[in-house]
């Protein structure tokens, strides 16, 4: 479903007035494959290249080297075709229309993604129920609490029934209740509908409760790729997941 083959992304950083800028590699030689139906956690310290990877997957950034395929499509060339098959949620930034009621944002998305009216209705009813949107669906997005907004964003990303869902820190800043309701929803989505999910997060609770497979990126390279159990096995027994990840983060430096 997601396929990266030696994908790389570098940025030119202009230093003062010097003409030739320094080349900074945000991601280099990154290769991994995510099979349909997998739920993968994508970890890494700040600035490791997580967001860059995500942006390459949804066609916001064009890779400078290597190959990226999502649902068999090259994201940077087939951006609009891919958009219909992928759902994206940015935890730090809403993809909804700030001044419009949630319901209007959904209606717009129905038209932009050309979702059939009846299919849309069933799907929205379903999402309204599972994400408990009923209480604030007519409220403008800017007036929603962070937890409500995130649930709205999730619904918006799923209205067109994408095959892949990419989540960039979806639980950031949420309270315990909101977090657990979103986790429950994501698990159901993955097991019942078979949606492939790629999740970046700093919250290791997300990883423990949701992800069968974990990938860890640091300095733009893959530092670990395996199951959660394998990840735990890299450290002495009785270590918590925090210990394990801390070791990996600091060890790879």
């Amino acid at each position: 479903m997601i396929e990266l083959d030696r994908a790389g992304r570098s940025f030119k950083v202009k230093r003062s007035l010097k003409l030739e800028g320094n080349l900074v590699h945000a991601v280099r030689d990154l290769s991994f494959t995510v099979a349909p139906g997998e739920f993968v956690g994508y970890l890494g310290p700040n600035g490791a290249g997580k967001s860059t990877t995500i942006k390459m997957l949804c066609g916001i950034l064009t890779p400078t080297s290597g190959r990226v395929r999502v649902a068999g499509l090259d994201p940077s060339r087939k951006r609009t075709t891919l958009a219909r098959r992928i759902g994206v949620v940015f935890g730090q930034r809403t993809t909804l229309w700030w001044d419009l009621p949630l319901r209007d944002s959904f209606e717009l998305i129905r038209h932009l993604y050309k979702v059939d009216r009846n299919v849309f209705k069933t799907r929205l009813d379903e999402l309204t129920e599972t994400l408990d949107l009923g209480g604030f669906i007519r409220t403008p997005v800017r007036q929603l609490s962070l937890g409500q907004r995130m649930r709205g964003d999730l619904a918006a990303a799923l209205l067109h029934a994408p095959d892949v869902l990419v989540l960039d820190e979806p639980t950031i800043g949420l309270d315990v209740v909101s977090k657990s309701s979103i986790r429950a929803f994501l698990r159901r989505l993955n097991t019942e509908q078979g949606t492939t999910v790629l999740l970046t997060t700093h919250d290791l609770g997300d990883i423990e409760r949701l992800c069968r497979r974990v990938m860890l990126i640091d300095h733009g390279r893959l530092a670990f790729d395996g199951t959660l159990d394998e990840l735990m096995a890299t450290a002495p027994e009785q270590s918590t997941i925090e210990d394990v990840v801390t070791r990996l983060y600091t060890g790879s430096r």
């Binding site: 916001i60 951006r79 992928i86 994206v88 940015f90 930034r93 993809t95």
Partner: peptide, 13 residues
């Protein structure tokens, strides 16, 4: 503001 990214994930020009 970084909001242009959200336009790039939509299937519209």
């Amino acid at each position: 503001a970084g909001t242009f990214d959200t336009m790039l994930i939509r299937p519209v020009s």
